[in-house]
Amino acid sequence: MKLGRAKLILIIAFAGLNIFLGYQLFWPDFGRLTEAAVTSEALRETEQKLAENNYVLEASFDRATRTSDFVPVSPSREIRHELLYDLIRTGVQIEESDRAIYYRADDRLVIIHTSGLLQVFFENNRSSLEENPVDLDENDLTEQVATILEEHHLLPEHKRFDYLEHKEDGSVILYYHQLLEDKPIYSGQLKVFIDAAQIRAVEIYWLEPGERIPTREMEVIPPTEALKNLVAELGPSPEERSIQKIDLGYYSGEYDAEKWEIPPVWRIVLDNNQYYYINAFTGNLEKEAVIPEQM
């Protein structure tokens, strides 16, 4: 009878042990996902550090643990093909230099750089908006711009309007960025230059995502660490600066290369007009690539 009770106790103990081991083995993400990457204490500490350097955190962010990976990319040729087909159909004069090819049509000049950058300069009124951009709200403006760009085969898929920049001379620049599964690729950018209710130029640097390697998915640094790193990099500010947005996406400098990988970044927006990219794996500020050059 005593042996039977002992067996029962052991069965319960081992069953409990197996549940614990199974949890650790098969659901490691469960504990990690519910765990907050940014604790209240870490947030307070970050805010204090920012305040000491004259920065104010106004942005809100997701405090859960996040993961990301490298995205292999190459310059996209999709837009270029559609545009060139349209140009050749209507007649175009072609000139070539070391770094670019120039396509001159009656109503526009198209420059395709070897790096993949595409520039279009409009030379007549075929790209006029209905009203001056300052008189339009953001939605109407982006809608009208999208219609014109589509008409000229200049509207890539998987894009998101990012922000608007008003210049001192009254002109306006619209910025769009590329999307990959709802995550922004900040390197893939569409810029629309508007002046006097006309689209004067369009710049497109679009990327073709390659095959991703699932095993390279890793946990990224929390946004608080990215903020601290940025402040360490920029140093104390003489005037109060406002941190208005912090988002996770992908970014790297432009490479004149065949194919490359872009890392995940925390994009931090200061005072609504300055953009910084902190590598979400290393915590370093993303600058120009380190290209070894002969000494």
Partner: peptide
């Protein structure tokens, strides 16, 4: 040291 954080660029 941290090989996983390295990204590859294929030049022309």
């Amino acid at each position: 040291v941290d090989y996983n954080l390295v990204r590859e660029i294929e030049e022309r």
